[in-house]
Amino acid sequence: MTTITLTKRAAQFAVIALAAASVTACASRPKPDTTTPAPTAPPPATQPSTPPAPVSQGPLPGTQQDFVINVGDRVYFDFDSYAVRYDAAPVLEAQAAWLNRYPSVMVRLEGNADERGTREYNLALGARRANAVRDFLVSRGVSSSRITTVSYGKERPIDPGTSEAAYQRNRNTHTAITSGAR
């Protein structure tokens, strides 16, 4: 359970409570007497109320959400390439640091390719991408026994589009936590 969900749920409760309160108020209010002045709304507060103390939101450390949101679970590749890109390296450094902090976590590295290739070649290409990430993580001290790899080839795109931007998103390695997260 994350604090995000808790907060959202709390807000929903508040709204429901307000609605219920106003319904109750309407139902129980006596029929207005023509001789009595209608009740007036309470006067506006002359002073702004003190704002509530800030609530910090975010996933609990060590959870899957923490990994996805604060570290990043996907790195991207160039066309027909499995070289770890300049923009992927910091993400993988952070993944390695996080995995070293939570040593019971096991991961599956899922290599993916865009649709601009044949099914079989792209399975091999996705495997290269998964293994490139594996090699990076192992080089940063993550035990290889905690890592499995699989290639989905072009079978599991995350973007259904057919633009270069969509192809780019679909050329990736996804680090999926399989067990051990809080």
Partner: peptide, 9 residues
């Protein structure tokens, strides 16, 4: 068939 090991197919 093909077998992939350690990224090599």
């Amino acid at each position: 068939f093909s077998v992939e090991r350690g990224g090599n197919t």
